[in-house]
Amino acid sequence: MIVDDEPNIVLALKYLLEEEGFDVHCYYDGDTAIENVAKVVPDLIILDVMMPGKDGFSVAKYIRNQSSLENTAIIFLTAKGTSQDKIEGYDSGAESYIVKPFDNDEIVAKVHDILGFNM
């Protein structure tokens, strides 16, 4: 599951992950993501921080409070790159934190890594 308000970034990630054979769902703001996450029950969410509606940290906290979603991994993908932001990100329950702009290979590897570990 990809949540980001930048359509072009979502598009790029969708290409990359579908190429790898993943089933990809895309959302463009925090509120719709929360609405749909229980239906989708994704293995992994790539989450932007600054979005309209609920921001990424709130979405992550929401997911961490749902028992049905305890196996969902979270990767933050954001332009906010200070260490304080990273700490807040990990505190809200993320498995990984990637600062934009990202390397395609890195993000694919990270996804494989986390999902492989979980499975």
Binding site: L13, P101, F102, D103
Partner: peptide, 10 residues
């Protein structure tokens, strides 16, 4: 960063 992210990725 935002546009650069897209540019770089594509």
């Amino acid at each position: 960063r935002t546009p650069i992210t897209s540019i770089r990725s594509f």
